[in-house]
């Protein structure tokens, strides 16, 4: 078996150490080593967005990043979006708008939408659709997801 690499990173605000094989993706590390299974594997090749996380604030598909690459970086996963004070407005709006059915794509959508609103707090519907085009949802037809994101933006998240 390949020799493991020691990596130090800040995961959801908490400094962490982990060991990983060079070939393990960040998604595998999150799910299998750190047991943060909120990031989902839908395709493992960057097409579906279910594994979206923020890497130093930038939206990435964690299946396309090696675990070893996050040395010294900050990773935010879906588990790091809500706080002790409660849900993030996006999470609340996803619930209110019934913007999820099976829920498997939901973590990726929420992480991606958070990245959007941090970059563009008042996006148009077209801008939301464009930004979220890398996230596949097969249940909702996107209608309620788009409404939830627009509503969260109105709330000034």
């Amino acid at each position: 078996m390949p020799k493991k690499i020691h990596v130090q990173a800040v995961i959801n605000g908490q400094p962490m150490d982990f060991l990983c094989e060079p070939r393990q993706s960040l998604l595998e590390v999150l799910r299998d080593e750190l047991r943060l299974t909120g990031s989902k594997e839908g395709c493992n090749n960057g097409n579906c967005g279910a594994c979206n996380v923020l890497l130093d604030g930038r939206l990435v598909n964690s299946c396309l990043v090696f675990g070893a690459e996050v040395q010294g970086k900050a990773v935010t996963t879906i588990e790091g979006i809500a706080t002790a004070q409660g849900l993030h407005p996006l999470q609340q709006k996803f619930l209110e708008h019934a913007a999820l059915q099976c829920g498997i794509c939901t973590p990726g959508f929420i992480v991606a939408a958070k990245a959007l609103l941090e970059k563009n707090p008042k996006p148009s519907e077209e801008q939301v659709r464009h930004w979220l085009a890398g996230n596949l949802c097969r249940c909702t037809g996107y209608d309620k997801i788009i409404r939830a994101v627009l509503d969260a933006a109105r709330l000034g998240s």
Partner: peptide
């Protein structure tokens, strides 16, 4: 009426356990 779904918070926070999440 349109109540919030009972499993909603688990699913928007990544806590809900799907088949591949079994460890």
């Amino acid at each position: 009426t349109r109540p919030l779904r009972h499993d909603g918070v688990d699913k928007v926070t990544g806590r809900a356990l799907y088949g591949a999440d079994v460890q």
